[in-house]
């Protein structure tokens, strides 16, 4: 084969659908589905025109936020939210660690694994708002229901990620500790904990800022905190106060975001 016989172009061969008919069929099918789906939308244009004006008032509230007239409500809501966030995160971590250890396939017996995995599945299946409505119905309006909701949600999140991290550890280190005659708890303390600790701290900080954001959302269904204050402000059409509250939430989430990424850098 001489030099000029080698091809000058190359195209990546299709990896999944190797048959041309299937590729065309799928693309045409997708286009038809998109057209049909869009045609079922039935926007009410007069309602949109009305709402536009209300929406703009909300935006003006943002541009001219009013921190002062409802400051007492706002600060109470904030303190409630921050308390709720911190306590629920701590309680969540305390409960998640044993469940996370149990839910790792490589450390515990099978029956514990299945129990812990079902707790995690239950916590993850129920969305925060639904759980909050349930707890508000059970314990009444206020931050206690919020605390329980966020703790419950934290368990599903942290246990699952911790368990996955434990499953990914370097087994050789655990084997070496086991070979010294260490007990099961000592293997956890000497081989597993050092390997997963940085990530556990990182995840906990991450969950702390998720919980703060969630505390604003679940307040709307009555679980106290800044969300309840926000809900009241919107109900009263006080968009300037609502704007102020949203700006404070954004600011705090940003602080949490930068703070936790700054801290995580030191944990390797």
């Amino acid at each position: 084969m001489s030099e000029r016989d080698y091809p000058l172009t190359w195209k990546r061969p299709p990896q999944i659908l190797t048959h041309r008919g299937w590729r065309w069929g799928l693309q045409i099918g997708f286009a038809i589905w998109l057209v049909l789906a869009l045609s079922t939308l039935d926007p009410n244009w007069t309602r949109i025109a009305d709402g536009w004006e209300r929406g703009m008032r909300f935006v003006y509230g943002f541009i001219q936020p009013n921190f002062s007239s409802r400051w007492r409500d706002i600060s109470n809501g904030l303190v409630e939210s921050l308390t709720m966030t911190l306590t629920s995160t701590v309680a969540g971590i305390v409960i998640s660690v044993p469940i996370g250890i149990g839910a790792a396939r490589n450390v515990g017996p099978a029956w514990i694994y299945y129990i812990c995995r079902s707790i995690i599945a239950m916590s993850r299946a129920l969305q925060e708002i639904i759980v909050a409505i349930f707890f508000v119905a059970m314990f009444g309006f206020g931050p206690f229901a919020g605390f329980l909701t966020l703790t419950f949600a934290t368990i599903g999140f942290l246990s699952k990620l911790l368990a996955e991290d434990i499953e990914d550890i370097d087994e050789a280190q655990a084997e070496a500790i086991r070979a010294t005659g260490a007990s099961w708890w000592q293997v956890i303390g000497y081989a597993i904990q050092p390997q997963v600790m940085p990530r556990l701290i990182g995840l906990s900080l991450y969950r702390l800022d998720i919980n703060f954001r969630e505390s604003a959302v679940i307040g709307i269904v009555g679980a106290g905190g800044i969300g309840a204050t926000l809900n009241t402000a919107i109900d009263r059409y006080e968009y300037d106060s609502a704007g102020a509250i949203l700006l404070i939430i954004i600011l705090l989430v940003m602080i949490a975001e930068y703070g936790s990424s700054y801290l995580r850098r030191f944990l390797q």
Binding site: D170, A172, A176
Partner: peptide, 21 residues
């Protein structure tokens, strides 16, 4: 078994030290 394992030292190919300790 744990009491007997104490009496047997083991050395590993990839060292198997707990890296973060």
């Amino acid at each position: 078994l744990r009491a007997m394992r104490r009496k047997i030292g083991m050395i590993f190919q990839e060292f198997a030290l707990v890296e973060r300790l």
